[in-house]
């Protein structure tokens, strides 16, 4: 495998795993919200907000993948010929957001789905439900930060 190919695996993992995390998370909240809205259609707007929260991990993953693609020239004028160690560097830089995105997306979904239950009982406390869910977000942001710092530190 060439260095470029290995770097592309990194990009694929960042987009793919973080995307899976978000898809599962958003899916859980969606089911929970559908249950609530069946009985109380007025809660659609509030639950939609909660459902969107676990969607960010997928965006972070895409961002990381995008930076990798740009750095190695997949997007742009000329494709760089990476050495194998350079390729591995890109792969490893993608790991934080790939893994943390996957796990935090699922857990943020669980917290948000619980917040759907909170909104069912106390719609005025939506803000608190969001704060709980956003706490999980912190770690996805930290992972994205690590990934970006690693990516920009790779000598080409």
């Amino acid at each position: 495998m060439t260095g470029t190919e290995i770097a592309l695996i990194g990009a694929a993992l960042a987009v793919g795993l973080a995307g899976i995390g978000s898809a599962i998370g958003v899916g859980i909240v969606g089911q929970s919200a559908a249950g609530l809205v069946t009985e109380d259609p007025d809660k659609f707007g509030q639950t939609l907000l909660l459902q969107a929260l676990p969607g960010t991990q997928g965006i972070y993953g895409l961002l990381a993948g995008f930076i990798i693609m740009q750095n190695i020239g997949i997007i742009g004028d000329e494709l760089l010929e990476l050495t194998v160690p350079q390729g591995y560097a890109f792969l490893m830089a993608a790991i934080p957001i790939a893994i943390v995105g996957l796990v935090s997306g699922i857990y943020q979904g669980r917290v948000s789905a619980s917040a759907v239950g909170l909104v069912a009982k106390r719609p005025e406390e939506l803000g608190k439900g969001i704060v709980y869910a956003v706490m999980v977000e912190t770690y996805a942001v930290l992972a994205l930060l690590a990934t970006i710092m690693l990516l920009f530190g790779i000598p080409l």
Partner: peptide, 16 residues
């Protein structure tokens, strides 16, 4: 346990 997500969401509304 998240297979219960819909049912629990609906139950929460029923509880009110």
């Amino acid at each position: 346990d998240t297979i219960f997500a819909y049912a629990v969401g609906r139950t929460r509304a029923l509880e009110t």
